[in-house]
Amino acid sequence: MNAALLIARRELFAYLRSPLGAAVIAGALLIDGIWFYWQGLTQKLLSVEVLQQFIYGASGTTMAAGLLLSMRLLAEERQTGTLVLLHTSPIRDSQIVLGKYLSALVVLFVATLLTAYMPALIFVNGKVSIGHVLVGYLGLLLLGSAAISIGLFGSALARSQVVAVIVSAAILAAMVLLWAVARSVDPPVNRFLSALALHHENFRPFMLGRLELGCVAYYVMVTNFFLLGATKVLEARRWR
């Protein structure tokens, strides 16, 4: 765990020193801000609907930010040859992956937290439940965590960051679009596919302010699955 925290700390500094972290946070804030302005001030919606639409829009930027933050994590190390330092140190591959994941999660957490003023603005002229806001943000973080793990998996597979983000985006898009596939097949396969979809079925409860344990477990499992995948890719590299 110590090694994972050490790696996470190094990566956090790397985010601070490179324009990537700031650019992703700024981009997410800008898009979320425009979306919130459009939903909150130009549409005739109830306060709760504004919040729901904000969470819905922010889920898109969170997924994109997760991918962009994680694309460099392993691909860049491989590209610059620094992965050798980690690979020849007495640490496990799972600690490398965990450290990288934690660093991206912290940056995403900060980016998400910085959007908190938007739901707070709803209280100026309206009223929503604090619980609804908290559950929505929990959903965003869980979705972001899953996106980071998918990005990390793509980053483990690829040598270049561009390839990494393309691979990760393809996986993420396929998982998001499972709900659409589910609509075109018969029961019980449609229910199975729908339950596997990254966004639609599993994110909607958070958007509506409902905390469902099954959905939380789903995102935790997706995160675990792809982090494990990234670890196995790193382990396999030693045999090649």
Binding site: R10, F13, A14, R17, S18, T80, G81, T82, L83, V84
Partner: peptide, 11 residues
Amino acid sequence: YLPDRPPLYDD
């Protein structure tokens, strides 16, 4: 271990 390309973080 020093590989043929030193594993250095430029930042």
